[in-house]
Simulated assay, not measured.
Amino acid sequence: MKHGINQRKLGRMPAHRIALLRNLVSALLHHETIKTTLPKAKEAARMAEKIITLGKKGTNPSRSKAMAYLMPPHNSPSPIASSSSSSSSLLEAENDDEHFVPPKSLLPKLFDELSLRYAERPGGYTRIHKFGRRQGDNAPHAIVTLVDGPRDLKFEMLAREVGKSSLDLLEQKGGKLEEVGEGWEGLKPRTRLQVEKVLKYKSEGERREFKVKAKEFADYIQAEESAYGGVRSPNVSPDTPAYRRPGMNTPKTGRLLHAGERLSGVSTHTTGLGLARGALARTPRGRQNVDKSPRFWGQARLPEGVSAEVV
């Protein structure tokens, strides 16, 4: 009979392992996106599912269990409040976006916001994205996110995939992206299945947002092609196979781009790696209203109050 195989040991003693998982689960519920190693991600996602289930129950025993598991301790003040000697320094720390202020309690978010968000979902509140390997020990990295949240990576990346795949359908039928029905005709079976899974528990407003994101990315691909069409030198051979010939999703002039490659002047946030990094980063102080839309070659962001005619 085998014992002690219900969870990974993670190379730690029981007390250290329990404290690690408590910290990871609390960080996941607070930030809704964390990056860690793959074994830790799987264990943290498993425990987060149980904690969210306690939040959906909403009973006093479930509240007591959640209070005993989540960190920081809910009866103690914030670490910044206990270490700050003056109210001015505390106010400055709270207004600084680069300074992390931990919440005093995660119970309001768990029993109010998350319980309402997942009221109709029977399970599967977390999603794990593999994120390469860590430099140094080559440990596998992963990103754990809460589904249907504001930082859901799959919602954004799948919308871009739908926008890119819809260009082929538009080229064949000559229609508009708004005319593509809710069945998502023209998509690959696997992509259509993923769209149905992502939008299964979404509201009508979120479904419209998904289609808007897909259309914006489709427009971006077309604008990028027209903007860079004359910059790249044409070297497409006439012996190129049919599936490699220029079309809606491939450049009409110049060489074919490889996976992960970007053109000069194109922001890295358009790639999957840049998207994941941007979701994990915090906005620096004073840059909340900065226009982050991508710029094409030859364009630049002008300072506030300076017009193009002056430059």
Score class of each variant (00 low, 15 high):
residue 83 S to G: 03
residue 182 E to Y: 01
residue 291 D to E: 13
residue 198 V to D: 03
residue 148 D to Q: 14
residue 148 D to G: 06
residue 105 S to H: 11
residue 265 G to S: 01
residue 233 S to E: 14
residue 175 G to I: 10
residue 150 P to K: 11
residue 214 A to F: 10
residue 260 G to T: 13
residue 237 S to Y: 03
residue 271 T to Y: 05
residue 291 D to Y: 07
residue 191 T to I: 13
residue 138 N to L: 00
residue 23 N to V: 03
residue 268 T to L: 09
residue 97 D to Y: 07
residue 297 W to T: 00
residue 32 E to C: 07
residue 61 P to V: 02
residue 76 S to Q: 12
residue 40 K to C: 09
residue 115 S to K: 06
residue 189 P to L: 10
residue 81 A to M: 11
residue 133 R to P: 01
residue 99 H to K: 15
residue 143 I to W: 07
residue 257 L to C: 07
residue 8 R to M: 12
residue 42 K to G: 09
residue 241 P to E: 06
residue 64 S to R: 12
residue 98 E to S: 15
residue 66 A to R: 04
residue 6 N to Q: 10
residue 135 Q to M: 04
residue 127 R to T: 00
residue 188 K to F: 02
residue 21 L to E: 01
residue 33 T to V: 15
residue 235 N to Q: 09
residue 260 G to C: 11
residue 212 V to P: 00
residue 299 Q to S: 08
residue 7 Q to N: 11
residue 102 P to N: 13
residue 44 A to G: 12
residue 301 R to L: 04
residue 248 M to W: 00
residue 165 S to K: 13
residue 23 N to M: 08
residue 120 E to S: 06
residue 212 V to I: 10
residue 35 K to M: 15
residue 215 K to E: 15
residue 310 V to S: 12
residue 210 F to Q: 04
residue 191 T to N: 01
residue 140 P to C: 01
residue 45 A to C: 13
residue 199 L to G: 03
residue 106 L to N: 04
residue 77 P to E: 13
residue 73 P to W: 12
residue 253 T to C: 07
residue 41 A to R: 05
residue 274 G to Y: 05
residue 255 R to M: 05
residue 1 M to I: 02
residue 310 V to D: 08
residue 134 R to Q: 14
residue 139 A to L: 07
residue 171 E to K: 14
residue 83 S to L: 11
residue 108 P to Q: 02
residue 38 L to V: 04
residue 42 K to D: 04
residue 308 A to Y: 10
residue 26 S to E: 08
residue 139 A to M: 06
residue 189 P to E: 15
residue 204 E to D: 13
residue 159 A to R: 07
residue 233 S to R: 13
residue 236 V to H: 08
residue 282 R to T: 14
residue 205 G to A: 06
residue 224 E to R: 15
residue 35 K to L: 11
residue 93 A to G: 00
residue 143 I to D: 08
residue 300 A to S: 07
residue 300 A to C: 03
residue 200 K to I: 02
residue 59 T to K: 04
residue 276 A to H: 00
residue 224 E to A: 10
residue 104 K to A: 15
residue 68 A to C: 05
residue 160 R to D: 12
residue 52 I to L: 13
residue 219 D to R: 04
residue 218 A to Q: 06
residue 201 Y to R: 00
residue 217 F to Y: 15
residue 33 T to L: 15
residue 236 V to K: 11
residue 166 S to T: 15
residue 142 A to H: 03
residue 178 E to A: 11
residue 19 A to D: 09
residue 115 S to I: 01
residue 15 A to V: 07
residue 119 A to E: 13
residue 2 K to T: 11
residue 98 E to A: 14
residue 248 M to E: 10
residue 95 N to H: 06
residue 164 K to Q: 13
residue 27 A to R: 15
residue 36 T to N: 02
residue 205 G to H: 04
residue 82 S to A: 14
residue 164 K to G: 11
residue 108 P to N: 03
residue 280 L to D: 08
residue 295 R to G: 05
residue 137 D to V: 02
residue 78 S to Q: 12
residue 213 K to H: 05
